[in-house]
């Protein structure tokens, strides 16, 4: 699904934010992305949602190398990726409904279908009464739920969420996590950047630990012996 080989990223002439990142995620997997603030989680996400080119190394998505892919090919891949941005990035002049409907409109879903799917999802995330509200009139938590709804509405093959529960109380946070779990059981590959120890422990998925430009994957489900063996071989 995703394969990074010796990937490095720097902004302009600054230092490398990511240096020699190597990992590969299987289809249908679920990972947390963890690391201190400024470690480069958002930067790594941007490489995965094809918002940026790596400055070195090879990125393979859905089995295709994206390094030299033409625009139309990239657009098609992006349609299979749902993203919850850390700062939401909702369109301020569109209602909650239209924001959530956007990915479906981009892929040309019939309006009747959009109507029922979007309404259902907005009800589910507790925003049934705010369908016509503009994002800026809503609270941070409500905006975050719109952002999550928008990311999942088109049933993406890959869901990338950058601290999607940061502005939510625990109950709504767990509720959204359950939504992600549900998507995952239907086959969506999921990567969630989070700081929340509570969430990582409750759901127990493998953790991609980012620090000093490098990435290590730790799986709490594997026991100490298995992890030691992984380290040896």
């Amino acid at each position: 699904m995703i394969k990074f080989e010796h990937v490095g990223l720097r902004y302009g002439v600054g230092p490398e934010v990511l240096s020699d990142v190597n990992f590969s995620l299987e289809p249908g997997s679920f990972h947390f992305l963890n690391g201190p603030s400024g470690a480069g989680k958002t930067s790594l996400m941007s490489l995965m949602y094809l918002g940026r080119k790596s400055t070195r190394g090879r990125v393979t998505m859905f089995g295709q190398s994206i390094n030299d892919m033409p625009q139309e090919g990239l657009a098609k891949l992006r349609q299979k990726i749902g993203v919850v941005f850390q700062e939401f990035r909702l369109l301020p002049h569109l209602s909650a409904f239209d924001n959530v409907a956007l990915p479906l409109r981009i892929i040309g879903t019939p309006e009747r279908e959009i109507m029922s799917n979007v309404n259902e999802l907005l009800e589910w995330v507790g925003l049934g009464d705010y369908k016509q509200s503009l994002p800026l009139t809503l609270s941070g938590g409500q905006q975050q739920r719109i952002a999550v709804a928008r990311a999942v509405i088109a049933r993406p093959k890959l869901l990338l969420a950058d601290e999607p529960t940061g502005n939510l109380d625990d109950e709504m946070g767990f509720r959204l996590m359950n939504l992600f779990e549900q998507l995952n059981t239907m086959g969506t590959t999921i990567v969630i950047a989070t700081h929340s120890q509570a969430i990582m422990e409750k759901f127990g998925h493998p953790r991609m630990m980012l620090g000093h430009g490098h990435l290590n994957i730790e799986d709490p489900k594997k026991n100490w012996l298995q992890r030691t063996m992984d380290g040896v071989f």
Partner: peptide
Amino acid sequence: RGDIELLHLMGASSTY
């Protein structure tokens, strides 16, 4: 620009 980049990131084609 920001909005256009977002549409672009959601996989909207140049034609869209």
